[in-house]
Design a protein around this nucleic acid. Structure first.
Length: 427
DNA sequence: TCTGGGGTCCTAGGACCC
DNA sequence: TCTGGGGTCCTAGGACCC
């Protein structure tokens, strides 16, 4: 059996841990740049605040009900996520925990006797709440897809399930599938749901009755076949190694305000490159390809392309690198290529790909080992200082000092758990 | 006026090889 | 007159996830 542990309204819950007065009150958290709503407490859902909607549209409702509003505080959420996952690793053994996203993880329950599954799921729920203050929901079933179905129903019917649902018999699985619409199945997105409805497949149960070949031919090849296997109770996505290195590393952001000058774009791109290179070094990798793109602000707004088309280019380096300065240089050259005078831009991004472990970088005849060593030492000193002191205390000059492109964060909460000067005060 | 930021996997099709 | 069959690698793009 497999369990999935999923934090309830995770970002909102993180904010509420340090603001108990918001308990049972409507809370929302906004995306970067305070653009969209990306998390809502149950109370906010109840008064009709929509998911992923733009903030400005929901603003009247938010003000009318006095909804507590926060800019996203990823320092806080990242640390709280680590606490939740670490609690589960202590409880279940770290080899059984597969972190799937910031707020959810799969637990391999093969070793737990069948009669103790319910009890163990409740223990996970209670321990995480006791140790971190975060409430979670737990779904347990024979496969990952079915455990997601269970988790969703547990969350939707908190009064009846107390946030734990175990699907351990064919009858329970069938009932759960009948109560789940096909678009709510993990792996079925908008496009597929539309197609399935045309075949009169409306619930997860309807879908589970199709045979594997049908899935292969109508739902994106092997992906569809695997999905059908999982719905039928046959494991098809194995427990993956949770700490696989990223194959692509990206840092992309909307600007706080639209930007017209190349200097600002270069500052932003240099800053994003710095951030991406840090992520690269954290996983001890180096990249051979760097791509840069910008998104112009289009006057005729087309809802089909919310961000408008992006304009970009890439450079393949002679040797893979993880050194910030070696990545900033080609990035700046790409900006020179793609920037058009007279246009206004609203977003830019940097992507690193062709990623290899940094201990297997191909040597370069013309570079002495000594110089490389010194440069790496410099990088790791910068990383340490920036991590332990404050973001960006040391930076490359090309990242700029004016930073008028920086994003808006008008409702930022303190980084209670990761900065000494922002620690929680109890008065 | 104002709509995020990361990722993954898979497939099709072209270039190229013998 | 008549021009195969099998494979690999790469890239772009689609669909999906949180």
């Amino acid at each position: 059996m497999i369990a999935i542990v999923d934090c309830n309204s995770f970002y909102c819950s993180c904010e509420r841990v340090f603001r108990p007065s918001l308990w049972n009150k409507p809370v929302v958290v906004l995306s970067n740049n305070d653009g969209c709503i990306i998390a809502r407490s149950d109370e906010a859902k109840a008064i009709g605040v929509g998911m992923a909607g733009p903030y400005f549209k929901a603003k009247p409702l938010i003000e009318q009900y006095g909804v507590a509003t926060f800019s996203s505080n990823y320092n806080l959420y990242g640390d709280m996520s680590w606490r939740v996952m670490e609690t589960l690793r202590v409880l279940m053994g770290k080899e059984h925990v597969e972190v799937y996203s910031v707020d959810e993880c799969f637990i391999n329950m093969e070793k737990v006797p069948k009669a103790q599954l319910q009890e163990m799921a409740e223990k996970m729920r209670d321990t995480v709440e006791m140790w971190t203050g975060i409430k979670v929901s737990v779904g347990v079933a024979p496969t990952k897809v079915l455990s997601k179905v269970a988790n969703r129903l547990a969350k939707k019917n908190k009064a009846a399930t107390n946030c734990v649902l175990l699907l351990d018999s064919p009858r329970k699985i069938e009932q759960a599938l009948q109560r789940t619409l096909v678009e709510d199945v993990w792996g079925v997105g908008g496009k597929s749901a539309e197609k399935l409805r045309r075949y009169n497949i409306l619930t997860a149960f309807d879908l589970s009755k199709r045979d594997l070949n049908w899935g292969r031919n109508n739902l994106g090849g092997v992906v569809g076949e695997r999905l059908l296997r999982e719905l039928k109770g046959e494991k098809s996505r194995i427990m993956e190694n949770p700490l696989v290195d990223k194959k692509v590393i990206a840092t992309t952001r909307m600007f706080g305000n639209p930007v017209k000058d190349i200097k600002s774009i270069k500052e932003a791109v240099a800053t994003y490159t710095t951030r991406a290179a840090e992520k690269l070094r954290r996983q001890h990798s180096a990249a051979k390809t760097i791509s840069v793109f910008v998104v112009p602000k289009e006057d005729n707004f087309n809802p089909r392309f919310r961000h408008g088309p992006s304009i970009g280019s890439y450079t393949t380096l002679p040797v893979a690198t993880s050194l910030t300065n070696e990545l900033i240089k080609p990035a700046m050259e790409i900006v020179d290529q793609i920037f058009e005078q007279g246009r206004t831009y609203k977003k830019a991004g940097v992507m690193l790909s062709s990623i290899v472990p940094d201990n297997s970088i191909q040597g370069n005849l013309f570079e002495t080992d000594n110089k490389k060593y010194e440069q790496r030492l410099l990088m790791s000193m910068m990383d340490n200082i920036n991590f332990s002191m404050r973001d960006d205390i040391l930076k490359f000059a090309s990242s700029g000092t004016s930073r008028n492109w920086k994003m808006q964060k008008n409702f930022h909460s303190p980084r209670y758990t990761t900065r000494w000067d922002e620690i929680c005060n109890v008065l």
